[in-house]
């Protein structure tokens, strides 16, 4: 490729006239050893090094610092981890977090697959497919916090859900578990993150060669067999990418759980944010490191099933 990169990397605009004969050969020489690619990748590398890798290294080192009730100081002690891993609360909270991740994953996977399937195989014109797909994605670009808040009039004691249930005579008094409960937390997660399933699954599904389905049909496969033996296996990469998004978002969340549970349920993110609020940074950092390791292991397992570079 392309001599263009060289100049772009330098940020200089070469004169449009003259000197052209010399440039391509120079550029090509630089290209051959990957220099240009490196130059182009430098800004991204610097940003991620400074705002992602250095902060993670910082967290790891602070997790070994000591703290008093009003300050923290550099040290190398295991106290934070001893305390964290020695407390039964930690395990309960991690389990609860995993439970939310699993529930949200399962529900969003089913909904995401169904929606993508409908858009791909039941909508016949590309224009409609794009229009309905956009309809599904627009909420993704609006505020998560507003979308959480908007459940209150639905789920509250005097909310729409309770009113409707009571009017229909299904319950005689308001259901208390609709809001500020595991139910409302999971509901909000599904509401916020289903898009992350729909998009990658739809993306892989649209690339399935329709003649494969014709072939299965001609060979006598039933609708269900086509679904389980052709479509689902071919959609696995999309399902995996969606799963990575949903699982990592739920695992790292603290705001949805806090808001939708009315501060009554703890997850790992809230453990960290509570420590931060108390300025107990070493303790927060130790929890963060354990969370990071958990999430990275989960992602590593999921990445075994999909080659992301091939899916792009």
């Amino acid at each position: 490729m392309t001599a263009s990169d060289h100049t772009v990397a330098n940020g200089s605009v070469p004169p449009t006239g003259g000197a052209e004969s010399a440039r391509p050969s120079l550029a090509r020489r630089l290209l051959s050893d990957g220099f240009t690619s490196w130059a182009l990748a430098t800004p991204v590398t610097l940003v991620l090094a400074f705002f992602l890798l250095a902060p993670i290294a910082m967290i790891v080192s602070v997790s070994f610092w000591g703290s008093t009730s009003f300050s923290i100081y550099p040290d190398f002690i295991w106290d934070n981890y001893d305390y964290l891993l020695g407390s039964s609360v930690t395990y309960k909270v991690f389990l609860k977090t995993l439970k939310f991740a699993f529930m949200t994953w399962a529900i969003t996977l089913v909904i995401g697959f169904t929606v993508a399937y409908y858009l791909t195989f039941h909508i016949r014109s590309l224009t409609w497919q794009i229009a309905l797909f956009l309809l599904c994605t627009i909420p993704f670009w609006t505020s998560n916090i507003i979308r959480m808040i908007s459940w209150i009039p639905f789920l509250g004691r005097n909310g729409i859900a309770n009113k409707t249930l009571m009017d229909m005579g299904i319950t005689s008094e308001p259901l208390e578990w609709l809001l500020y409960s595991e139910f409302s937390v999971t509901l909000a997660f599904v509401h916020l993150y289903t898009l992350f399933m729909v998009v990658p699954i739809f993306n892989t599904m649209m690339r399935i060669d329709k003649s494969l389905i014709e072939a299965a049909y001609d060979a006598g496969a039933s609708g269900v067999q086509i679904l389980t033996n052709v479509i689902i296996p071919l959609c696995k990469p999309g399902m995996m990418i969606g799963s990575i998004f949903v699982v990592t978002l739920v695992m790292g969340d603290f705001i949805t759980v806090r808001f939708m549970s009315g501060s009554q349920i703890a997850n790992v993110g809230r453990l960290i944010s509570n420590d931060i609020a108390l300025l107990a940074y070493p303790s927060a950092a130790a929890t963060a490191v354990v969370l990071l390791i958990t999430v990275l292991i989960m992602v590593a397992v999921m990445l075994r099933f999909v080659d992301i570079r091939k899916e792009l």
Binding site: L52, I56, I59, V62, M251, D253, Y281, A288, L291
Partner: peptide
Amino acid sequence: VIIASLVIPSILVSLGVGLL
């Protein structure tokens, strides 16, 4: 690293940058 940037919980970035 780019993929990691996507999957690392946001609160870690917040905490880490703040501490740094």
